[in-house]
Write a protein that binds this DNA or RNA. Sequence first.
DNA 1: AGCGGGATTTTCT
DNA 2: GAAAATCCCGCTT
Length: 190
Amino acid sequence: MSLKAELDCAVDDAAQRLLGCVLEREIDGTAVRVKIVETEAYDQTDAVSHSYKGRTPRTDVMFGPSGHLYVYFTYGMHYCCNVTVGGSGHGAAVLIRAVEPLGSETTLASRRAGKAGVELTNGPAKLCQALGITKAMNGHDLATSPLVLVMRPRLSKKEIVTTTRVGITRAKDVPWRFYIKHNPYVSRSV
DNA sequence: AGCGGGATTTTCT
DNA sequence: GAAAATCCCGCTT
């Protein structure tokens, strides 16, 4: 099954499917692999989503095909990355909030001055910095190099914690944040 | 361990 | 002109 087809579903379902999946990043000739451990869903019907107000130059990628990278810039200094889901014409994406390095920690640390261990990738802007993801990669097809998303068998409900999203002011009570239970790289456990 | 503020620019009103 | 899907540092307990 293609990456695109697997993510062509409801945004909260896609967010849970992405847990445990692997991102393969090629940086300066080195292959770096990380596992997704925390996600949040954002849909066009959702008051806090960037796509809520319709298709604009900024949110164009969210309305495109599933399985692409949506990168946004915020707080004047940080990038955060999302995987588009829900299919063409539907403005939805899943924010990658935390990942777990699968080796290659020295390569990740080289972009995270003074940081080590879980501090390398336990937050949405941190992992973008560690993986070298910037606005230049907005719209990138995640089936292709230098950043590839590899799907994995979906986790059982027992392995997933469901809770509310972080850092938002509206729709605070929507339970669209998901993370792998007991994983040390999760940005903030309940 | 927890709280508070500053950084800094894109985006939409 | 204000808010923003955040992070880091310094100060207090």
